[in-house]
Design a protein around this nucleic acid. Sequence first.
DNA 1: CATGAATGAGCGTTCATTCAT
DNA 2: TATGAATGAACGCTCATTCAT
Lengths: 213, 213, 213, 213
Amino acid sequence: MAIKKTFENLPEEKQRRVLDEATVEFAEHGYHQASINRIVDRLGIAKGSLFKYFGNKQGLFEHLFGHAVAGFKKPLKAIRATPDLDFFERIEQSFLAGAQFVDEHPNLYRIYLKMLFNESFPLRERFLGEIRGANAKYLRQLIESGIKAGELPASLDVDMAVFTLHAVMDRFLQGYAVPSLDNGLAPAANLQARARALAAFLRHGLADAPSQE
Amino acid sequence: MAIKKTFENLPEEKQRRVLDEATVEFAEHGYHQASINRIVDRLGIAKGSLFKYFGNKQGLFEHLFGHAVAGFKKPLKAIRATPDLDFFERIEQSFLAGAQFVDEHPNLYRIYLKMLFNESFPLRERFLGEIRGANAKYLRQLIESGIKAGELPASLDVDMAVFTLHAVMDRFLQGYAVPSLDNGLAPAANLQARARALAAFLRHGLADAPSQE
Amino acid sequence: MAIKKTFENLPEEKQRRVLDEATVEFAEHGYHQASINRIVDRLGIAKGSLFKYFGNKQGLFEHLFGHAVAGFKKPLKAIRATPDLDFFERIEQSFLAGAQFVDEHPNLYRIYLKMLFNESFPLRERFLGEIRGANAKYLRQLIESGIKAGELPASLDVDMAVFTLHAVMDRFLQGYAVPSLDNGLAPAANLQARARALAAFLRHGLADAPSQE
Amino acid sequence: MAIKKTFENLPEEKQRRVLDEATVEFAEHGYHQASINRIVDRLGIAKGSLFKYFGNKQGLFEHLFGHAVAGFKKPLKAIRATPDLDFFERIEQSFLAGAQFVDEHPNLYRIYLKMLFNESFPLRERFLGEIRGANAKYLRQLIESGIKAGELPASLDVDMAVFTLHAVMDRFLQGYAVPSLDNGLAPAANLQARARALAAFLRHGLADAPSQE
DNA sequence: CATGAATGAGCGTTCATTCAT
DNA sequence: TATGAATGAACGCTCATTCAT
């Protein structure tokens, strides 16, 4: 707590600038390659100030990303509370909600992606566990609701379903955030169309795909 | 390739040792955090030698990973040539072939994963494009063969199918290579069982899942 | 002394706390390694306040240790005024008085020890001169009284006697304050026994030592 | 070992310069206040070089002082081997041998003094233990020889004798190396005279001092 | 050709001190 | 008067790279 007292006394506008610049730096370079020097240079503040605010580099990162973790979970909450949508509509909406988060917080999402396979981020296990755990739990609840509502067969292998949904949703967002990873695969369809297509796809599988219209 | 001439004159055994140690270092630390110092210390060779062989750090990485890229494509080739398997059996086999590659080349796969979302790897775009492009192409051909063989409906949205298959296969391998990312989602099923379950799942989708036995 | 005006207006209790914490810090880390940050953190006061009180780090140290110097001289004064003790009893009592001072002001004594051979303490020459000069003067007077009283031979080389007494007394206190410096030398005798033994020793020297009982 | 390989391959002249400059820096400022920057600036070499040689600041210090520790013990050895001197002549010679060491290695002795009461030197306990232990052992053997030779009474309290000799010898050298600590106490007698006077003094003690001539 | 000593920019971090509020 | 945010030089240390031997 003592660490952030100084920072929290700052004018909100300045707090925002500091966190934004730092987020950009971590998003561009990852944790270790991110440079405190560059951050303070861009901010036009003294190096010592940043250390007063956050204690050290790790403190800065943890503050910044720790506060953001909640944001990763929020978009999904809204959808679960929509009684008028059926399961596949909710899936579709979840895709779009994720994309909206990526649009609004592109750098936080980039940090998350870098953290996925780079072990050297501080608190990586905790942060990833929270985000991915929340996602998985959300999807599981969605599926279970779908079964209860008769929209999904009771015989569904819920674990596999969660796994598949999670995989496809992750990939959908990754491709959206880093288009170069979609290398030639998908048509440059607009976002909603792709979300709808994927949802339809997940409904029937490969062998039982209905005719396209 | 004047750069690699002196390296290629080395005894093959020594070449292998150099590349192996470097691969381990890049796999553990990524590109920028990897330390030439540590590599030559472990190898017991002079630092200057490594620079003579590869020019610089980037040259070392490009040589090493460039040679490895072909390895990423090989396992899939074998499966496409199996006339006695139907589409979903091939998918299942593809999963297992990928897992086998991860087993045999864990460090190359770790490098690939780190490269996915970290822009600072040299030739990243090219390497990723090659690997992912080959994967996508392979999957597309598999699907098209499946359609021709009547195992998949002609109406299938091939792009979406490729996308989904790719997503699930990637996630399958990532979870296999980095189990902590599977956070609580999947049961500790053995590899083959999970591959089979996923293939079955992809066949019928969520809404049309057959009863489990 | 404009510098200390605001400090002296503080409630005495607070003055004491400030000086005590600062003394601990200087005793633990010496002058340069002592950290104003740590001091104000422990005190819970603003950093600016300390600088208002004392101007700068050096001012704080000088105030603190300057006030303490008198304390270094006090214990000895008392002994000189004891008419019923002979010279060697006074020496013995001086040792014990020194030890008592170390017990009561361990941190001041630690500062003094650190200052002995570390040129970077502010006002070091003056402080050391005062303390050591007072000690030497005290010992000289003790010796001269002893000669006058016929307890010591008139032929005594007073300079050498002062030197030796000073050396032994210093070492006695140093070993008491920093036992690790006594490395294996002395038996774990209790304080009074050792003081008495040293006094006896100083009386007769090495060659003329009487039988031990 | 690996740490010092690079350094040991250097021309001896350069090795000497490096160690000399570093010794001066540590002698002037102690361990923590000593600045690697200043050392390399004075040497005109790159900062990285020093770290290649010794790994880190502590490694430099330990190398430098560790090698010097043997030098602290050497002068005493020579004296013990002189059969033609009696006990008090040996004491006198020991004082002078110590003074000679201080003359030849003033900066090492200054480091030793700073280390005495400053806990923050690396390996302080070990270095001090070695030096002081060797001194104490040397003095004890001297005393025991003196007793055997009948030059000292068999009833002598050896522990106290060692303690006193050690104290006086230390103080003698400290005053020689840091004259300001002798504040006004002793006359500016020449070295040999003072050594002789102290030895005489230790022989007879205060109460039994013979007439001065 | 191999070596490994030398380089120096850059890193994260600490610190006493200043000064507007 | 008390505050505490801001400062920026200095610290120990790492690194990929160069080049004389």
